[in-house]
């Protein structure tokens, strides 16, 4: 495993820890999109179907379990926890997330590396992950007071995607026959979605002012 890949996984892990920290210790999920969190839970459930079928490494298995458990825990907190659920900004989290699941599934059926159940689910999860951040970005635009933890959560999530692209470039030149068009194109689309957020995040950090996204 190269350094970009490890750094990418670690920033992904940090993003989840930051979000859980906010929810668990502050007992607030203000500014966090439940729609995005539900999509991530679905993404991991679909992608990690191979968890008990095909073993890669202990690292791989542990990370998969962590991302599965954390995504479902976050959804549970936001839906069921009696204090946390009251802080959920339902009125502004209106992105119709169900409508992007079906097109991703169709795309998975049409564009996959092999027409088997697991491969179709894998491709579906890749397409869905690419757009899963959209409800969160829309909610951020509508949020007056974006707290630091929420902004950091999205920043680390975006950083993870950027690092994965560097990882692919590295692997392309160092490993023979390492070509994954589906994850590369979907990954680049996913990373581009963060462009606007990154711009305003870095600007707010440079000027030492609170993050605000123009509507």
């Amino acid at each position: 495993m190269n350094l970009f890949r490890l750094a990418g996984d670690m920033t992904h892990l940090v993003s989840v820890v930051v979000l859980l920290l906010k929810i668990h210790t502050i007992k607030s999920c203000a500014g966090v999109s439940l729609k995005t969190q539900e999509l991530y839970a679905l993404v991991f459930a679909a992608r990690y179907l191979d968890l008990f079928v095909h073993f890669v490494s202990l690292y791989n298995t542990v990370m998969k379990l962590v991302f599965l458990a954390s995504s479902f825990t976050i959804v549970w907190y936001m839906r069921r926890h009696k204090i946390v659920r009251r802080t959920y900004d339902k009125e502004h989290d209106t992105f119709r997330h169900h409508f992007i699941v079906l097109p991703c599934l169709v795309l998975g059926l049409l564009l996959n590396e092999k027409f088997t159940f697991r491969e179709v689910m894998w491709a579906f999860s890749i397409y869905l992950e690419a757009v899963a951040i959209l409800p969160q970005l829309v909610l951020l635009q509508r949020t007056r007071n974006i707290d630091n933890l929420t902004a950091q959560y999205v920043f680390f999530l975006g950083a993870y995607r950027v690092l994965y692209i560097f990882n692919w470039i590295y692997r392309y030149f160092t490993e023979p026959h390492f070509v994954h068009w589906i994850s590369w194109i979907a990954g680049i689309v996913q990373t581009l979605l963060y462009g606007d957020f990154f711009y305003y995040y870095i600007l707010s950090w440079k000027n030492n002012v609170k993050l605000e996204l123009p509507a």
Binding site: R5, D9, H12, D50, H54, V56, S57, N60, M63, K64, F67, E113, K114, R118, E119, W122, Y164, N167, H180, S183
Partner: peptide, 10 residues
């Protein structure tokens, strides 16, 4: 190698 066996990323 099979398609799924080449996937070691998360």
């Amino acid at each position: 190698k099979d398609a799924s066996e080449r996937k070691d990323e998360l």
